[in-house]
Computed example of a mutant assay.
Amino acid sequence: MLDIGSRSVHLKIADLVPGGPPEPVATLKQPVHLAEATDRHGVISQDAIRRLVGAVTESEAVVAAHQVDDLVPLATSAVRDAANRNTVLAAIEDATGVRVRFFSGEEEARLTFLAARGWHGWSAGQMLLLDIGGGSMELACGSRTEPAVALSLPLGAGRLTRHHLPDEAPVHKRDVARLRTYVRSVLMEATAELRAQPAPVSAIATSKTFTQLARLTGAPKPTAGAPGRSTLARSDLRKWVPRLAARSDAERARLTGISASRAHQSLAGAIVAETAMELLDVRQVTICPWALREGVLLDRLAALGTPPLPAVAVPRARNHTLHRLHTVS
């Protein structure tokens, strides 16, 4: 799978064999920083388009070297919602021959829910999923493999930072309050159906945003081969919002769990995560290492005739966050 996100182009190659989980083969991650290169009108800059074309070209060379049978080139909201997305897609296809597709936001929510269900198994019961990307936030809930409700909202951490927060720190309390009010209004309007569902047995969060916030608030660092079980408590997260607001990007990057590349949008990510958890009455979320890419792989496995879920939760003896797509027929 070739995943074109708001920050990077991420190629993951995996063997898909009916009856087993996706087996990792190779991975390549290249920064392109589309979010930072998108102006307030939603236009991705020409420099960023050139970086993107170069990253796809390099990924294609890796795909050829591994003799990949089935490449899924997928763009998420950074390209999907861009005002010049047709120009971006045409530039990629003209230079590489790769025709990039994109899912609707609701389909992204469905596939991410499938990944979380695959990781946690049936024991998760009625499950609520939260996922914060650079351009959008996906929410889903349900008790089966397919969610009963799947939503995508324009509440990505990068998007909110660009449109609602000042460039320089410290960020004033009034700016934090305005952003929290905006996030709450969007959530209130869009999540009535979600909030009408039965109370979840499990609240699951995916994405780098939630993973880094969990580390920031004290969760242990996952290790290769033993991802562990990280959680994020709303009460702990709320304490960190004013602390992030008071710090510059460089100071945030020195905090536990916050990477330099995501420091600028970490405040917005914390605000939307904390506000969503409050509105949905979630005190704590469990961090899931599987997300959209793994959902696509599981969907492909189902197409090969493999049941979408095992009878119990997927074993956690290895790190499954490094998958890419290489199907075996």
Rank of each mutant, 00 (worst) to 15 (best):
V53R: 00
T57E: 15
L71E: 10
P166G: 14
D299Y: 14
A140C: 05
H120G: 03
L194Q: 04
V56L: 07
S259F: 08
P21Y: 12
T145V: 15
H41D: 15
V98G: 00
A192T: 15
G121K: 01
S45P: 05
T87N: 07
S45M: 11
D47S: 14
A317H: 14
Q212L: 04
V314Y: 10
V282R: 03
C288V: 02
A14M: 01
A109S: 04
L179V: 02
A246R: 04
L194R: 04
L280Q: 11
D39E: 04
N319L: 09
G121W: 02
E93S: 11
T275Y: 02
R51A: 06
E107Q: 15
A205C: 01
L194W: 03
G228Y: 08
A109Q: 01
L255S: 13
P242D: 08
V62N: 00
L280K: 09
K173D: 15
T206A: 07
G133E: 02
Q30T: 15
S77T: 08
W290C: 02
F103T: 08
Q197G: 08
A109Y: 03
A276C: 14
A95N: 12
R99Y: 09
D3E: 08
G295A: 08
V285L: 02
G142K: 01
V62D: 03
G228K: 07
A273F: 04
T327Y: 03
E294K: 06
T321C: 07
G42D: 09
I92R: 00
A214H: 02
R247Y: 02
V53E: 01
A226Y: 08
D281C: 12
A253L: 01
T275A: 08
A233C: 09
S248C: 13
R117C: 00
V176H: 04
L255W: 09
V56Y: 00
V186S: 01
P222A: 06
S235F: 11
H66W: 13
W240L: 12
L194M: 11
C141V: 10
R101V: 09
A303T: 12
T256Q: 14
G305A: 09
R247M: 15
A263W: 03
D39M: 05
D167I: 07
H163R: 15
A116V: 06
A150N: 05
L128N: 01
L279K: 00
P220H: 10
P170Q: 07
T327C: 07
L255P: 06
L280Y: 12
D70C: 13
I49W: 00
E107H: 10
S45F: 07
G97E: 05
V282H: 04
I92N: 04
V72C: 11
D299W: 07
A82Q: 03
I132H: 03
D236M: 06
D281T: 14
H33M: 11
L179S: 00
E193W: 10
H10K: 11
L325D: 01
A246L: 09
H66N: 12
G133M: 03
A260H: 13
T181D: 14
L232Q: 01
V241R: 00
S235I: 13
A150R: 04
D299K: 13
V272Y: 01
V68F: 06
